[in-house]
Design a protein around this nucleic acid. Sequence first.
DNA 1: TTCTGTACTTAGAATAAGTCTAAGTTGCGA
DNA 2: TCGCAACTTAGACTTATTCTAAGTACAGAA
Lengths: 133, 133
Amino acid sequence: MTSHIEELLTTHGVKPTAQRAVIAEYLVGTDCHPTADEVFQAVSTKLPVSLSRATVYNTLNALVEAGVIKEVVTDPGRVRYDANVSDHHHFVDVKTGQVYDVDAHKVSALKLDLAPEFSVNSYHVTIFGEVKK
Amino acid sequence: MTSHIEELLTTHGVKPTAQRAVIAEYLVGTDCHPTADEVFQAVSTKLPVSLSRATVYNTLNALVEAGVIKEVVTDPGRVRYDANVSDHHHFVDVKTGQVYDVDAHKVSALKLDLAPEFSVNSYHVTIFGEVKK
DNA sequence: TTCTGTACTTAGAATAAGTCTAAGTTGCGA
DNA sequence: TCGCAACTTAGACTTATTCTAAGTACAGAA
Ligand SMILES: [Mn+2]
Ligand SMILES: [Mn+2]
Ligand SMILES: [Zn+2]
Ligand SMILES: [Zn+2]
């Protein structure tokens, strides 16, 4: 009876420890693109032992490395983490700072007119605007 | 006989001090998207007095505020500065980290299929790839 | 001219995000 | 059961940036 999260970690080659499971579970269950510190705050109470910031960073880096999550950088000095690893872009509400997912198929394919020495692997669109309630 | 740079600063409402002029001049004369520290290194020898890092940061922030330059964030933890304030996007060479300008008209206009509460002000495309020499 | 107030710059202290270190803990596999 | 490698921990360290307190520059008033 391995949990869904343990299976996610295992299939990506990450050994599922209690710390890693609770961090991955938190990220999978949110769509709000938390920072490392927000992950630490949210998760530290959910473990019977004290959680080190170093473990949070180690785990986030390991999960990125393994492809379980992605880093998102929309603002200077704020790395955010995203368990949505599907092809998507981001909408930033400039009033609140909130980051929303924008599925890649909601954005028309880009045509790029670049010199031939520029070979493109991928691209990411950051959309700035406002969400009216 | 105010210089071109002093005029640029003045017309943007920034009082042209020696420190600000030399920093703005350096940025206007390069297309390599330097970090604050690279600006500091490049510019500190060009003044008869010692230059404080605080002044570099104060100046960069003032120039951004005034619209003389823009911040560019392509990587976690590295804010870069850009005197190209025309509408453009960025190509990041994933091998070297070099950032190249991509004029907006080299990128096809985006069509976005967003829910009506999302009102778009602007967007920025970051293209990842490699420049073959 | 000199005076003077405000804006600017400075060195270094403080903060914040992230990494490293050294020591202890866990837990699978012989 | 043991041994070992992987993992976690607290706290020191590093790096980027901001803040602070004290000094400097300089335009306008007198
Ligand atoms: Mn989502
Ligand atoms: Mn930082
Ligand atoms: Zn996302
Ligand atoms: Zn640019």
